[in-house]
Structure formats: C-alpha cells, structure tokens
C-alpha cells in the first residue's frame, strides 16, 4: 500500500475490504488485487508485479498507509 494514501492525522486506520485473488492464486501485473476502505472511501490496490499472491493482512484486517498487505512473487 502506498505511503501517504490518506492522512493518518485525520483518519488513523483503514481496513482491507476485499481481496480479488485467493491466497496462493496467480495475479497478473497491474490487476486490481485488493480494495482498502477508509471512512467509507475505498482505494483500489494494483499489483505492482505478476506472480503468486501471499496474503499478509486478511479481509477485515486493519491497515495504515505503507503497510505490507500481501506479497507477490514466486518466493
């Protein structure tokens, strides 16, 4: 998740609203992989690379800008 996606002084935390690929699934580069909700506003998170998805923060998990919510790659 990008740093500075929202102002944490205004809104301390957000939530992972949706994952669009299953844990362990193949994700193409550039696909919308997750959706974050912050005070009823939602942000789409794009896959920066293609590969196998490892979900780190599950649906409904609490996140901050800069949080690693998942990893994509063959590792």
């Amino acid at each position: 998740m990008p740093d500075g996606l929202w102002d944490t002084a205004e809104i301390p935390e957000g939530v992972v609203a949706n994952w669009f690929y299953a844990d362990g699934g193949e994700v193409p580069k550039g696909a919308t992989v997750a959706e974050i909700t912050v005070e009823k506003t939602s942000y789409d998170i794009e896959a920066p690379e293609g590969g196998r998805l490892k979900i780190v923060v599950p649906k409904d998990g609490v996140v901050l800008p800069g949080t690693v919510i998942g990893k994509i790659g063959d590792g």
Binding site: N18, W19, F20, Y21, A22, G25, E26, P28
Partner: peptide
C-alpha cells in the same frame, strides 16, 4: 486469460 480472480457483484 483464465485466472481465479474474484469479483464483487458491483464490479462484475
């Protein structure tokens, strides 16, 4: 391309 992409109803 075939994948296991999951969409919400609104996105579908």
């Amino acid at each position: 391309m075939a994948s296991d992409r999951v969409l919400t109803v609104s996105r579908a």
